[in-house]
Design a protein around this nucleic acid. Structure first.
Lengths: 194, 194
DNA sequence: AAAACTTGATAACATATGTTATCGTTTGGT
DNA sequence: ACCAAACGATAACATATGTTATCAAGTTTT
């Protein structure tokens, strides 16, 4: 559901460029909904600039389940492929520049790609990569404490800490905003001893 | 990493049967390791009978991250595809009957399947299905309490509750064995009022 | 510039969850 | 049949985390 495919899979670039005419480029302000939970996803999205989050409504409050940044593509996969209601919403966090491509054209691009002998391997690599990402996130919840998950974020996705408001990060880590504050202040105290 | 493909993707059956001669059938006692964390996965596994779990070692104790049952296939995907050390171990929970197919033959089967015009769509469906599964598990940790996750298990995978020892279920839910006991006794009290 | 909102820190208290220890039951091996 | 493990319940205590409320410092809107 998220991939950085231009870097990771450069063999796709020619096709991506070829289908650029079918994509719509739009500037979007911060906090604008791009896909609403319950609606069917009709478009693949690609982020030129800015950042987005996916979130689930739970008893009125919302829980962020994923963040997306520049040069990443996304869709609500289940909804996009199987035409079912999306289990989550997507909105901008910062003012962003987004390319959207209608399902129809995305499918057409895939059909065309299917003729390449290397495409099955590429798609296996791509999907394996995403699957591994989700498995790791999932395993991290079982294995790690919220504090450890926060430290992982600092290490592995420091840009995220910088750009994303803290209450979104808190729900992404599975804790309250208050508790994330506590974790931060605890870590700050630990560091300041040296 | 898990799929029930004979039911969900019957178009693959002919190929699966064709490659049966390359598979080894073996009976395995309970609690036998099939794949060890840190080793490279060389085989795809298919469960004819029995049940398995995948787990991660964390400071000496082990955390179960997934369960597998009859007619499901699995591999340590990252390890299998990218030839890196497996992040988890796999072991039998019950005495089981397992088919294993070496990577070499699995890849050959995929090459052959690639020639089918429908295969790209099938592989998209298969991988989407698995990805959606992991995303849901992940979202459930963010969204639901351990008690809700336990009730989800009861509703959606009751066979699992019956067959799997409770301490494995506890770590899978992300709680201690003691706390799962508490959850069960709380739910039992709630029910007994009627 | 004032008002309204957003973001984040902190305190006080309540609840959830982990840890350790103990016990009884079941299960597996010999 | 016996012994040793594995399994699961429960109690007591410790720690982690949630909730609510308050305050302060930005931002954005008007």
């Amino acid at each position: 559901m998220v991939f950085h495919f231009r870097q990771a899979f450069p063999q796709l670039n020619a096709y991506w460029d070829k289908y650029l005419p079918f994509q719509k480029r739009q500037q979007v302000a911060a906090k604008k909904i791009l896909l609403e939970e319950g609606k069917r996803s009709q478009h693949y999205m690609f982020i030129e600039k800015g950042c987005l989050r996916a979130f689930i409504n739970k008893d009125g409050s919302d829980k962020t389940i994923q963040f997306f940044f520049e040069q990443e593509g996304l869709s609500s996969l289940d909804s996009f492929i199987n035409n079912v209601p999306s289990p989550f919403s997507v909105e901008t966090i910062e003012p962003s520049v987004i390319y959207t491509m209608h399902k129809k054209h995305a499918m057409q691009m895939i059909d065309e790609l299917s003729k390449e002998p290397w495409f099955v391997q590429t798609i296996l690599q791509m999907t394996a990569k995403r699957q591994i990402h989700y498995m790791n996130e999932f395993a991290s919840f079982i294995r790690d404490t919220p504090e450890q998950r926060y430290q992982n974020l600092i290490k592995k996705r420091p840009h995220l800490i910088q750009r994303v408001p803290q209450h979104y990060i808190a729900s992404y880590l599975g804790v309250s905003t208050v508790h994330l504050s506590r974790i931060k202040s605890k870590l700050a105290k630990g560091k300041s001893r040296f």
